[in-house]
Every structure is written in C-alpha cells, then in structure tokens.
C-alpha cells in the first residue's frame, strides 16, 4: 500500500508549494498573452491541469476499486485509497468547472453553456459527489467498500466521455490542445512549456494531497477500529456472542514501514 514517511510528505508539500508559486509567476508574468483571447487565456494554465488532476484522481479511484473487488488483492487499504482519491477528484472537478466558467465569460461571452463537454463534466462532479455520499452510508465495512468500488467503476465510464465529448459531438468548448485527434498541438512554445509545467505542478499537488488524505484516513480508520473493538469487547463481556468481526480487523496487512500507522498499530499486536 502506498504510504510515505512524514518527512517525505513534508518535503513533497514544500516542493509542491514552490512549483505552484513558480507556475503563478510563469503563467501570470512571464508567458505572453494570447493573440485572440488576451490575458483571459492565462486561465488555461490552471483550468487544464485542474481537469487533468481530476482525471488522474478518478483513474486512481477506479484502479484501487478494481483491486479491492478482485479477491486476491482485496485489502481495506485499496478502499481507503479509492475514497481519498475521489474526494480530491471531486474538489478539482469543481475547480475545473469554476475556472472554466471564469474563462468562458470573457472569451465565449457566457458563464455556462449547455454543450456536451460542460454537461458531461458537471455530471462527473455529481457522479463522484454521489459516490462520496454512498461511502458514508453506514454498513458493514466490507459491504460498504464493495458497493463503493462498484459505484466507482460505473462512475469512471464518464471520464473518457468527458475527454472525447469535444471530438464526438459538436461543442462550443474547443478540442484538446495537445491530445486532440491529430495530436497536432497548435500552441506556441513558451505557452506549451508553461502548460506542461502546470500539469507537473498539479500532479505534485495531487501527490501531496493524497499522501495527507491517506494518512488522515488511516488515522481515522484506526480510531474507528478501536471503537469497534471496544464495542465488541463490551458486548462480549455483557454476554452476547458477537466475535465474528474480530478476525477481519487486522486486515491492513502489508505494513511496509508505515511509520505511526495506527490502523496497524491499533488493531494489531497490542490489543
């Protein structure tokens, strides 16, 4: 399971901060404005990487969910990773919509239009918001994780639909600049490099946010498991034989140097 030591997470956070700062300087100060769109085009350097980050996050959610559903790789950690990544994906899908709206108003002349790209992106937002709600509907942990994993795989169908919507249908939204059908990027060099840097900076941000979010999820999971243990212990003590849950609790198995991982520490040896 992916887990970084705390100094590594802090270093990643610092690197992300520097990268985002450099991006702001490049995108707002160094790179020239667009011939047609003027300064408004500078929103591309946050709108495009935000959308990329959302795709990446939902891809990680889909892969983690598949790994949870496959019995041979089933571990609670995959479910935790899927949920953490989806949360970040939802935030950046929302950000993509807001930034797109701010870009659309000066350039298209509209905050919002009902074209296929915008609508399928809004659908993506609500699909994964619904997924996050579904994750919180209480149930047995394994049942909850399985139904979340199935929902995540269904929701992921919309990601390629969003991406190819501008090629499949006639939209007001332009086609992708770099990954268009002809792979023929019509973008001047310094703008292209700034966009590439922006994608790298946002990918770093994803790495940092994920590392933190997974740390947090494990910490909270550990607490939940201890509370569950306590509840079971209390019921066993009061006479009702409910020990069936106990075998599954230490499931967080790999423990690859997870410094201070209470999901392992809390559920495992010292209980």
């Amino acid at each position: 399971m992916i887990s970084l030591a705390r100094p590594a997470v802090n270093a990643l956070g610092l690197l992300t901060l520097v990268a985002l700062f450099v991006l702001a300087v490049l995108a707002l100060g160094v790179v020239p404005p667009d011939a047609v769109q003027g300064d408004a085009q500078r929103l591309m350097y946050v709108h495009v990487p935000a959308a990329w980050l959302a795709y990446l996050a939902f891809f990680v959610t889909a892969v983690s969910s598949a790994l949870y559903l496959w019995p041979r790789t089933r571990q609670p950690g995959w479910d935790l990773l899927a949920g953490s990544s989806a949360e970040i994906g939802v935030i950046f899908t929302g950000l993509t919509l807001v930034l797109g709206s701010l870009w659309g108003r000066p350039v298209w002349g509209a905050w919002w239009v009902w074209d296929a790209r915008l609508v399928t992106t809004a659908v993506l937002f609500f699909l994964y918001l619904g997924y996050l709600a579904l994750r919180r509907v209480p149930a047995d942990p394994d049942v909850r994780a399985r139904r979340a994993a199935i929902a995540a795989l269904i929701a992921f169908v919309d990601v390629p639909i969003v991406h190819f919507s501008v090629n499949w249908w006639r939209t007001l939204h332009q086609e992708a600049t770099v990954f268009n059908p002809d792979l023929d990027a019509q973008i001047e060099g310094s703008m292209a490099w700034t966009l590439l840097f922006a994608v790298v900076a946002f990918t770093l941000a994803y790495g940092y946010l994920m590392a933190r979010r997974v740390q947090l999820a494990r910490l909270e999971e550990g607490r939940e498991e201890r509370e569950l243990d306590a509840a079971i212990a209390a019921r066993v003590a009061s006479g009702s034989e409910r020990t069936d849950l106990e075998d599954r609790v230490p499931g967080e198995g790999t423990g690859k140097g997870n410094i201070g991982d209470p999901a392992v520490a809390g559920a495992g040896e010292h209980r």
Binding site: P32, D34, Q174, E188, M191
Partner: peptide
C-alpha cells in the same frame, strides 16, 4: 445571443 467559438490554437500577438 452571440457566443465566440474560439479554437484550440494559442500564440502570442
């Protein structure tokens, strides 16, 4: 209502 249907080409002025 008029909307501007700009392309995916970007270049400095």
């Amino acid at each position: 209502r008029i909307l501007i249907n700009h392309g995916n080409e970007y270049s400095p002025p």
